[in-house]
Simulated assay, not measured.
Amino acid sequence: MKNVLVLCTGNSCRSQMAHGYLNHFQNNLANIYSAGIETHGLNPGAVAIMKEDGVDISQHTSNHVDEYEGIEWDYIITVCDHAKEHCPYIPSKKARRLHQNFSDPSKVHGSEKEIHEAFEATRDAIKEYCHDFVKEELMD
């Protein structure tokens, strides 16, 4: 079983969405974990936008990357530039490190509609990335 870590700054939004989709698309091909270089709690907007697409992440927790010390990673995926630039060293003999920056919808200010659209756009981009990752990396 492969081990996949999805990493972002606060493990509240983008990494949680990716965690949800990776679990959704793969069928017992990997253990999926998400973490942050900080912990900000689960973002309610992320939970709501994922629920709209039939993926429940409401029971996820916001975890710090140090909580997973000792796991041998096959993949470490950073989903924001800040995490990539500030991530502590994660020792791994074999981890393939991937990076894809997704916009942070929690930073959008505006009307309820504008905020919803930002969460939806980020969710859809993450969904596509995770679908392709599972197909190209886990199902080979």
Rank of each mutant, 00 (worst) to 15 (best):
D140A: 15
T39K: 14
G110K: 07
E69V: 09
N11M: 06
H116I: 06
V108G: 01
R123D: 10
V4E: 07
A30P: 08
G70V: 02
T39Y: 08
E114Y: 03
I77N: 06
V65L: 08
D104A: 06
C8S: 15
N31C: 08
F133L: 09
K93C: 01
V47Q: 07
G45L: 01
A121T: 03
G36Y: 03
A83E: 05
M17H: 05
H86A: 10
N31Q: 10
Y21I: 05
F119S: 12
T61D: 09
T39V: 15
Y21P: 00
K84F: 09
H19E: 13
S15E: 01
T9C: 04
F25G: 14
A125K: 14
N27A: 09
E117K: 13
G10R: 09
W73R: 00
E120A: 04
V108M: 11
S106Q: 00
N23P: 00
I57N: 02
S34G: 12
G10Y: 07
G70P: 02
E137T: 10
Q16V: 12
L5E: 11
H24D: 09
T78V: 04
E112S: 12
V6H: 09
I37H: 08
L98G: 08
L22F: 05
I49P: 02
G45Q: 06
D104E: 15
A118V: 13
I32F: 02
G70E: 07
G10M: 13
M17P: 05
T122W: 00
H40A: 14
T39N: 11
K127H: 08
A83Q: 05
K93L: 11
R96G: 01
S103L: 14
G45A: 02
E72D: 14
T9H: 03
D56L: 09
L42K: 05
L98E: 03
A121Y: 00
H40N: 13
P105E: 05
L138Y: 11
L7N: 11
N101L: 08
K135G: 06
G110V: 10
N63A: 01
E67S: 09
V65M: 02
H131F: 10
S103A: 15
E117N: 14
H19Y: 06
Q59A: 13
N3L: 07
D104M: 03
R123M: 09
C8H: 09
M17A: 07
L7M: 06
H40G: 10
H19F: 07
L22N: 04
E69C: 02
P105V: 04
E137G: 12
A46H: 01
D74A: 15
A18D: 06
F119V: 11
I76L: 11
Y75P: 13
L5P: 04
D132E: 12
E112G: 03
H60F: 11
L22I: 09
K135S: 12
Y68S: 10
M139L: 13
D53L: 03
V55R: 14
E112P: 07
Q100N: 11
Y21T: 08
V79L: 06
G10E: 14
